[in-house]
Amino acid sequence: MSGDIRLPAADAAPTPLHDRARRFTAPEVVAGAAALFFVLAAVVPQWVAPGNPLGINPLSAFQPPSFAHGFGTDESGRDIYTRVVHGTGSSLLIGAAATAIGLGLGIVLGTLAGMFGPVVDFTVNRVLEVLFAFPGLLLALLFILVFGPGVITATIAVGLSTAPGYARIIRAQLIAVRRSAYVEAATVQGLGRTQILLRHILPNTLAPLFVLATLGVGQAIVWAATLSYLGLGAEPPTAEWGAMLSAGRTYITSAWWMSFFPGLFIVLIAVTATVLGRSLDRRLRHA
């Protein structure tokens, strides 16, 4: 129905960068360091922030950033830096797992559509159109209302609502790759359909998905945050960035730090993932 969606070309950085493809650029180094920090925060948060993310102290609520509380305190007097660090794990999990679900479903549907002839393609396309015609937020909302709120349902809901987008892009990419010269060459050589799929088409289709997936992680966290805003996200007192952002929004006129720092970390994750994803992709292509 709609026209093919072209993927952003993976090695589309401006020409001056091409020469240095094998050296680490400054953004890559910074992004690498940030990634290390995020991994540490997700795996061993107590090393990065030794405090208790759930420890309330009502009488020191709404404290602006200070030496004692670098990011300030929230409405229950909890240290926001500690909460942001301890929230990395669940937020990353939401981002990564939702993207994996969306991408996984997208790959299955996209491959079905792109590889198994016009009848399957037609059917899958109709299914995709139905999914597309649903506003993503409604899909997520209905899913959560049916299965109950919480981090897991929110993650699945976000994954589901992003799947059709991935599926359509993968299908378009597959069709483009299948028409390409080297696949035709492989067909002429008499390779079987499965072999062509596994050895030629999928690798050439999936590599560019890195860029897409890295964009997706940040998007998924933002989606989950919106569900928190609607009151259907992570259950309290989980320190999850989306839930913190949503809670902080209530006090935005009097305590900006409550939503600024969780928001900052969502953006940082998105930037880090994008920079690393692109660099990884470039290296894979040049390898």
């Binding site: 940040g218 966290i221 945050a225 805003y229 952002l245 949503s246 929004r249």
Partner: peptide
């Protein structure tokens, strides 16, 4: 810009 949640 892409990482800005609408509500916030």
């Amino acid at each position: 810009a892409a990482a800005l949640p609408h509500f916030w």
